[in-house]
Design a protein around this nucleic acid. Structure first.
Lengths: 329, 329
DNA sequence: CGTCGCACTGTAAACGTTTCCAACGTGCGA
DNA sequence: TCGCACGTTGGAAACGTTTACAGTGCGACG
């Protein structure tokens, strides 16, 4: 096991001072022969600059973090790959960490100098988390709805997305439309509910068919979907995200209900499983990829010293698939 | 924005030396009054110990990394949550990073002192990656099949899993069984192919119906599944993992083939989408949760100075669902 | 021939922490 | 009364790097 050799060892082997070795490796001023000898010595010794020492000295870590509430949700995986390609282009490393829905402690930890900045998904917005973001020692970009001075955030317009979806379902003939929502003390849960109610009213429909699950996951959605269907079969069901809609699809199958024959079904987020299900799932692309890219660019600019630019939103896009159209055999 | 205050500032505010402040905060020897004043000062200033400085001094970072090839694969999400609960219990932070299938550079980076150890998923085993693991300055546990002296690895027994699956399909009456595999220059791809061939021979079946996709993803599996089905409809198809099996299910639906009526279908990994699909997917639980837990414990022991214990394997378990049993309407 | 500038090099300080060591006062037993 | 042990404290070194600064030798130019 090669113990991490130090710059001092490299310098000694090359017969130069530590300072010269540092300059030779980092493109500072040095003679050709010095550069050549130092690089050879570093190669021989398998030298790796110590991340901690470099970070301590320079105040820069060369890495940013992404903090997500649920690594199993494909929408975060998609965001992560968008982020990765953005930061890779700047030679910055991306770390991911799973944190609670209201990640106060995790955001406070950011001031410990582990990263140069962070992108944080915030589902439950509270004063504590807003304050934690505000006082953090490094720039933080929030993914979610946070309208507060001096805080950068990028959000989906899930209200508009809900409008698109309801309009589509109405056009397909649905009158009694139900919503299977996540917890309404979260931003997405609240916004989707509000958007749903507003859209229903705009179309002259009632918005009383709402069931709330404990979480935005498959596992939480299944019993909630069962409860919802137990109260009668509506014309259409909207899941607060694709995972919940697919859990509903599964419950429908178990009950012998056929989608879209007996009822229509749609989700939000437009994740990969939506294209893959049978029937494939109509969904609304809330722009996960774009949000991640915008968040990354905003963060990188902040790290370079730019001022916060406040809240940014990405427009939704309806993706119609079989679950609201084609008769499924 | 609260700039990170230093220990020196805390010490000054509490009227003690830096050394005493450090001891007071870290539970060293200090008087009650000192502890009280230092803690108050630290609280007032919102002091956070600098991660870099502490790591540099102590040689410990208090974090471990998990390196995965594809953050979107639910099996890695499941592993990550198992890991997280293991390391949380030790007060260690878990970072996740997405890396290539043969993560040589990423493993070499581990020697930079960013983490105390790492768990690395290795799909493509080569001499270079084995060497990189061997010379890494911190303990590394490989998830995958690496039989080399001095290297810790935890693997699924996908060969045995494949046997279980083929036996089950034969029992259900299948004779012409096809495999939709991932790249065979990867360990899982190779092992699954070998297991498939062996199992078929054991049951006196041919094993010539094999299609290889470019990757273990939905996207790569769909065209491959189409090609496979284009060569005729077998009695059963096994996907190299659930994602590929579900992609096949989707192609079957598009072609008007009904599962399990027209053909049986099964996958490996037993991820959540398998329970959720319609029909639900028979799969083999390759013990992702247990593998992650074992890997975490092995890594933590290595970090505490234990010797490598070589390769460990986890037994598979067949999970029978609708795609190989119930007639689906 | 002296002086200046130039290209390069080495010394040393600094980043923020932990920890070894010596010093300190205090109370106790001899 | 003195010395000793003990509990507590501060000074200072160390971790490995970057970088400001001061030097070195050398060629060129006046």
């Amino acid at each position: 096991m090669a113990e991490g050799s130090t710059l001092a060892a490299v310098a000694a082997r090359a017969g130069v001072s530590i300072a010269s070795a540092s300059r030779a490796l980092n493109g500072g001023i040095a003679s050709t022969s010095t550069i050549e000898r130092v690089q050879r010595a570093a190669g021989d010794l398998g030298y790796r600059p110590n991340h901690m020492a470099r970070g301590l000295q320079s105040g820069r870590t060369g890495q940013v973090a992404m903090l997500v509430p649920d690594a199993a949700n494909p929408v975060y995986a998609r965001m992560m790959s968008a982020l990765q390609s953005e930061v890779d282009a700047h030679g910055i490393r991306l770390l991911m960490q799973q944190v609670p829905a209201e990640p106060v402690a995790a955001v406070e930890e950011l001031s410990a100098g582990l990263v140069d900045g962070a992108i944080v998904v915030v589902l439950r917005v509270t004063d504590r988390i807003v304050e934690a973001v505000r006082v953090a020692a490094v720039p933080v970009v929030v993914l979610g709805l946070v309208e507060a001075a001096g805080i950068d955030s990028v959000r989906a317009d899930s209200r508009a997305g809900m409008e698109l979806l309801v309009a589509h379902l109405v056009e397909r003939g649905a009158r009694r439309i139900a919503l299977l929502d996540g917890p309404i003390d979260t931003t997405p849960g609240r916004t989707r509910l509000d958007g749903f109610v507003a859209a229903c009213e705009r179309h002259g429909l009632g918005a009383d068919l709402v069931e709330v699950a404990d979480d935005f996951t498959h596992a939480a959605a299944r019993p909630a979907a069962r409860a919802l269907l137990g109260r009668g079969v509506p014309d259409a069901i909207v899941g607060a995200n694709d995972a919940m809609a697919l859990a509903t699809l599964r419950e429908c199958a178990t009950l012998g209900l056929r989608v879209p024959h007996d009822l229509l079904l749609a989700g939000l987020d437009d994740t990969e499983p939506a294209e893959l299900s049978v029937p494939s799932l109509t969904s609304v692309d809330l722009g996960a990829h774009d949000r991640a890219r915008i968040a990354a660019r905003t963060l990188l600019r902040r790290i370079e010293g730019a001022e916060p630019r406040g809240s940014q939103a990405v427009a939704p896009r309806l993706v119609v698939r079989e679950s609201t159209t084609k008769e499924h055999p």
